[in-house]
Amino acid sequence: MRKSLCLLAVIASLVSLTACSSATSQSQALASPGECADTSAGKASKAISVSGDFGSIPKVTFAKGTLAADATERTIVAKGDGEQVDPGDTTFVEMSIYNAVTGSIVAQTAYGASPATAIVVNDQKYLKGLVRAVECTTVGSRIAAFVTAGDGFGSAGSSDGTVQADQPLVVVADVLSTVHSDAKADGVPQEPVAGMPAVELDTAGRPTVTIPEEPAPADLQVAVLKQGDGAVVQPDAEVIINYQGVNWRTGEVFDESWGNGPTNFQLSAVVKGFSSAIAGQHIGSQVIAVIPADLGYGPSGGNSQAGIEADDTIVFVIDILDASSTTAPAAG
């Protein structure tokens, strides 16, 4: 059975294994924002044969156990004509990862059977070999990469045993879209809605929220601050957003992504009020959501680490930057 490369499972394990690999320090450091690491084609990456349509499961062949290189290599199988994927971007990909020695699949995304997977192009957060494969390519590109053990699982190997110590990888990636680290909602500003918290934006798009001097509403309230014209976000989507969370009771910010770059997650993995505020909106929109406790952290007794009590109403300002949704694979 094909293994799903989802953020909550395999990708998360790749991150932790990168951190504990003894070979990590020998790998290339993360390129500075706007600067690309030197990952060029070589004999090993050129020996990887890839066929099939972009965005669909590829047919990948290589001589298992024979590929070798001193540094990670990548070959652009097909160059896309979209924008460049910069270091720090959050990028939707379809990806297949193989053990270069055994030829077996280590992990594979769903290729249209469920929301596409987003990775942050930052090798302090994600396996270096994945980052080296996609950074500074262009949207619409298909890439074949030979990933050295030092940029993969190193001397630790993978926790599930599919990659043993010091075994390299083969990665084939399709770059579907990208969101730059400084992105912000570009929709048309809308008139404020009476009774909702006031929102002011600085030049970078970071909001300052002012809570009204009145009790919080009992029901979920959602208003569009900027109306985007992108695709409608589906309830099962994985989204790329910027957000800020404010406690209605205190007026204090308890969490935000602004200043750290956009974040990504599946709508099914967050509190109900938050997902309800995003699903059905257009990409490019900015929304504000006032979420009562029963649709927020109330059912779990609050969130003491964030200073949220069980009966607290929370407020989110959200820039919806990109989203993927379930799409059935094309016939044939």
Rank of each mutant, 00 (worst) to 15 (best):
A223Y: 05
T208E: 09
T109Y: 03
Q28F: 15
S300M: 11
S25M: 11
A183I: 01
D160I: 11
N99E: 08
G273F: 00
K64Q: 13
N260Q: 13
A289F: 01
G273R: 00
L14H: 10
P197L: 01
A173G: 04
V139D: 02
G187E: 01
N242Q: 07
P189E: 04
V253N: 09
I76C: 04
S32P: 11
V271K: 06
Q26V: 11
V232H: 12
V315T: 02
P215R: 09
A133G: 06
T327L: 14
D81G: 10
S4Q: 14
D236C: 08
L321W: 00
R249S: 13
R249D: 14
I97Y: 02
H180E: 10
T138Y: 12
P292R: 05
S104G: 12
C36V: 07
Y297F: 10
T148A: 03
A110W: 07
W248V: 02
I240R: 03
A68F: 12
N247I: 07
G280E: 09
I278E: 00
G195Q: 05
P58S: 04
F146V: 03
A331I: 15
G157C: 06
Y243A: 03
F153N: 01
P168A: 07
D160L: 06
V101M: 08
Q234Y: 12
E256P: 02
A223L: 08
V246S: 04
T263D: 08
L127R: 01
S268G: 12
A107E: 01
F62G: 03
V179F: 10
A310W: 10
T61W: 06
T250L: 08
C20V: 15
D160E: 09
K59P: 05
